[in-house]
């Protein structure tokens, strides 16, 4: 492993996980939905993997698939219930869902005891959460074996989103964001597409939660509080909500910023707040604003290409 990578492997891991989370909220934002349930779905993914690996011998890869499947299974009915709400109402309903997930994770064993004969059974373990055993990572092709799955996962999501972005699906989502009424007049089944975007976002978040479990190793309800949802939102806001490159930039900058700006470590929250405010006010299209990239392109004088956004 090159020294830079090995010195910063934790930061790189968390950047990758946060990119996945940023992309999970991006897909709903790109449809004009402000859903704040991503932290909740992340918890569902992480707890699924953690419970499976502590209570059974099922391998991690199967656990990951199960976590994503559970995310989809829960997102479908919840999406059907709440997606009729607009803007702020949706934001608050999904926030409420996220909090309920956290409260259930905290008191999971009480729920288990309602249905189980064994009153001493401990699965969720309350505030202490589930601790996974530590394995020293082995290095494969220059990266630890814990990093590879996340990297691949992020690449796959990016590939899917990039393909969608230029497809009919992507254009429909954008049209819903810009004008829901117009889109539905043009014959777009708005409800259907909103649900698809919500389920996709939730599945991505559940997968990211599952993949974060072996890195964080201690899965407790504190990981998934309201402020986690806000962090995820900030990645997409800073990066930009109209192109999938946005959340990637946003997550990378916001995760590495505290490391880069070490001299500011006591004032991190102020800098964070300023970045969020200034970017939403003066840079509403985020870092991935096509205009910024246009400027950048002209500066480095790439051959003239067609603008896409």
């Amino acid at each position: 492993m090159p020294e830079f990578v090995s010195n910063n492997i934790s930061t790189i891991n968390f950047i990758l996980i946060n990119i996945a989370l940023g992309l999970s909220i991006y897909i709903t934002l790109a449809t004009g939905l402000l859903s704040l349930s991503n932290a909740g779905f992340m918890a569902i993914g992480a707890y699924t993997v953690a419970i499976i690996s502590t209570q059974s011998n099922i391998p991690f890869s199967v656990g990951l698939v199960m976590a994503i499947a559970l995310g989809v299974a829960l997102a479908l009915p919840i999406g059907m219930l709440v997606l009729g709400l607009r803007d702020i109402y949706l934001a608050i309903a999904t926030l409420g869902f996220g909090e309920i997930v956290r409260i259930i994770a905290l008191n999971g064993d009480k729920v288990v005891h309602l249905f189980s004969q064994n009153k001493e059974l401990i699965i969720f373990n309350g505030a202490e959460g589930i601790t996974l055993t530590y394995k020293t990572p082995t290095v494969i092709l220059g990266l630890p074996d814990t990093t590879w799955p996340i990297l691949i996962y992020v690449m796959v999501i990016i590939y899917i989103l990039a393909t969608l972005h230029n497809s009919r699906f992507g254009r429909i989502l954008a049209s819903i964001r810009q004008d829901e009424t117009a889109a539905s007049t043009l014959g777009v089944n708005v409800v259907h597409y909103k649900l698809l975007a919500f389920v996709l976002g939730s599945a991505i978040a559940a997968g990211a939660g599952a993949l974060s479990a072996p890195i964080v190793r201690v899965i407790d309800p504190h990981n998934y509080v309201f402020s986690r949802g806000v962090d995820i939102l900030a990645y997409a806001v800073l990066g930009g909500m109209t192109h999938w490159v946005g959340p990637i930039l946003g997550a990378t900058v916001l995760t590495s910023l505290p490391e880069a700006l070490r001299f500011l470590k006591d004032q991190r929250d102020i800098v964070n707040g300023l970045i969020i405010m200034l970017s939403i006010i003066y840079l509403p299209a985020g870092l991935a604003d096509p205009r910024i990239w246009g400027l950048f392109k002209r500066l480095v004088s790439f051959p003239k290409r067609e603008q896409v956004s």
């Binding site: 934002l29 402000l34 707040g273």
Partner: peptide, 14 residues
């Protein structure tokens, strides 16, 4: 619509 919410979250941090 979500812009003010996000902006006020930033203000809270500060």
């Amino acid at each position: 619509h979500l812009a003010p919410i996000i902006s006020s979250i930033g203000a809270t941090f500060i």
